[in-house]
């Protein structure tokens, strides 16, 4: 669960139609963003509903860096007002449709950044972004050997010698 802190009204401008949210990253950067932009995040939407119940304004503390948070905000800003099928709660699991052209360019980042974005999107419950990241990662390792997959994603072979050689082991499936 996120930590929620009370926010002074002067910290968060924006009375009126376009409400503003204060998001605080793990590196303690304060980022003000329009609520409308972040409505794609089910997590944020649920937090906002909670604020409305208490009639208080809050900051939302998030467990990832401002660099990652800004990338997520960039994604949400790009698709502001768009209906994306993957974000529908009844839609099929994300990651099955091809990555949109804009998403491909947006996700043209190094491996670690891609992994950070997918974890942030998962935390924020942005299904469409999780799906695009999952597809991008799948594309990175598609057609690769076991060794190549390990190298691409920085994973070690940690099977025991027994697992390597038993009849029901990875060697046979």
């Amino acid at each position: 669960m996120p930590t929620i802190v009370s926010v002074d009204d002067s910290t968060v401008p924006g009375e009126g139609s376009s409400r503003l949210l204060l998001l605080v990253s793990s590196d303690n950067k304060h980022i003000v963003v329009e609520e409308d932009i972040m409505s794609r995040s089910r997590f944020i939407s649920k937090q906002v509903e909670g604020f409305e119940a208490t009639s208080q304004r809050h900051a939302i503390l998030l467990p990832f860096s401002s660099f990652v948070l800004n990338k997520v905000i960039e994604y949400c800003s790009h698709y502001r007002g768009y209906y994306l099928l993957e974000d529908d709660p009844d839609a099929a699991p994300p990651g099955r449709s091809p990555v949109r052209e804009w998403d491909q360019e947006f996700l043209d980042v190094d491996r670690n950044m891609l992994l950070r974005i997918i974890k942030a999107a998962h935390y924020l419950e942005i299904k469409s972004l999780v799906g695009s990241c999952a597809r991008a990662i799948a594309d990175m390792i598609r057609g690769k050997t076991t060794e190549e997959m390990r190298e691409i994603l920085g994973v070690e072979n940690d099977f025991t010698p027994e697992e390597e050689h038993s009849p029901s082991s990875k060697c046979t499936g």
């Binding site: 699991p93 994300p94 990651g95 099955r96 491996r111 670690n112 992994l115 950070r116 997918i118 974890k119 998962h122 999780v130 799906g131 999952a134 597809r135 990662i137 799948a138 390792i141 598609r142 994603l153 920085g154 994973v155 070690e156």
Partner: peptide, 19 residues
């Protein structure tokens, strides 16, 4: 300590499903 090896199970499931 590897971000890829320790991805949450449901994210890994989506990656594998896509693959």
């Amino acid at each position: 300590l590897s971000p890829a090896a320790m991805l949450p199970s449901d994210i890994l499931a989506l990656i594998f499903d896509s693959l």
